[in-house]
């Protein structure tokens, strides 16, 4: 068998072993059932709100309306006003941008870094796997919120700080999931074929293994996104999130807590928005898992 014939054989082998899925399959899977459809609708709605929200909000998020403190929901102020006389509807709408943007950035970073680490240690194995995997496990042993509070208490609350903290917290989880998926793929024929062709480690990781771990990665990314939303809101609630007067939903809940008996609407709407968004992302994530499982991409 010539070298050319050998390459063609390994390429065919790779094509048959490698995971395959199309965007159309995913869309059909998500829209074919009511709950994933609802989750998709909710997520798309909030993303749209984040994009066009400031254009449709009647007030700026920090605009104080003199003489309008703690106004109940009405046709003038749809969600009412808060203790400083700020329109809650406008703040919720403006706040969608932050509650989507920060978790989105952190999720992209977590997935990129975590997938790279996970594929690498899963593929090379040996002492590198042992050391890095144990290091990641030790990071996972610390409660997320406690670690976040300590770190932000030390470096001070800021958007950059929140992103760093969430990435540090969630990257090990992504890495561990990807490592497991990589271990399953490591002995596959198309990986062996790539090795025989003399491909570099980077090529094998990103061209051969990555497509195979994408289903697991996609589901994990959706889950991380949902957890990142929750953590961002929790940090905001604890006063360690985005700084005032930014319309951070978690901070809004905290500010409204002490006046709940006087102006419950100031708590209802941001808390409701957090809840609905997280439910939506979870439904979407669950839908993705079902699609991939049905297509045989996940066990």
């Amino acid at each position: 068998m010539t070298t050319l014939q050998k390459d063609a054989a390994t390429a065919r082998l790779a094509e048959t072993d490698r995971g395959q899925f199309s965007l159309r399959t995913i869309v059909r899977g998500l829209t074919g059932r009511p709950l994933p459809l609802l989750g998709t609708f909710i997520v798309v709605f909030f993303i749209l709100l984040a994009v066009i929200g400031p254009q449709i909000a009647p007030y700026r998020f920090d605009e104080i309306i003199r003489g309008a403190t703690r106004q109940p929901p009405s046709t003038t102020y749809w969600f009412g006003t808060d203790h400083l006389g700020r329109d809650i509807f406008s703040r919720v709408v403006w706040g969608a941008r932050e509650i989507i943007t920060i978790p989105l950035i952190t999720t992209i970073l977590c997935v990129t870094i975590g997938a790279t680490i996970g594929m690498f240690i899963g593929y090379v194995g040996g002492w590198a796997d042992e050391i890095i995997a144990r290091l990641l496990d030790s990071l996972l042993a610390i409660p997320a919120l406690v670690l976040a509070m300590v770190m932000l208490g030390t470096i001070g609350p800021s958007v950059a700080g929140i992103i760093i903290v969430i990435v540090l917290l969630y990257t090990p989880i992504v890495a561990r999931v990807v490592r497991s998926a990589t271990l399953n793929l490591r002995a596959s024929g198309y990986i062996e074929a790539a090795k025989l062709r003399g491909e570099s480690t980077a090529y094998i990781l990103f061209r051969e293994i990555l497509p195979g771990v994408l289903p697991a990665l996609a589901v994990e990314a959706a889950l991380r996104f949902s957890y990142a939303i929750f953590l961002t809101a929790s940090l905001g609630f604890l006063g360690l999130g985005v700084q005032p007067p930014s319309p951070d939903w978690g901070r809004m809940v905290n500010e409204a807590r002490s006046t709940f008996s006087l102006a419950p609407w100031a708590l209802w709407f941001p808390a409701g928005a957090i809840g609905i968004l997280i439910i939506g992302v979870n439904l979407l994530s669950d839908g993705l898992r079902r699609v991939f499982r049905r297509e045989g991409q996940l066990v």
């Binding site: 920090d62 104080i64 400083l84 001070g156 609350p157 700084q243 005032p244 007067p245």
Partner: peptide
């Protein structure tokens, strides 16, 4: 005080003073 900072930020803006607000826990 955090609410006061938010109000000051608005008032000062009209007076050519632009501030970012950094809220710290009391103990810190």
């Amino acid at each position: 005080y955090a609410d006061m900072a938010a109000l000051l930020q608005q008032q000062w803006q009209a007076g050519c003073i632009n501030v970012n607000i950094e809220v710290r826990t009391e103990g810190y």
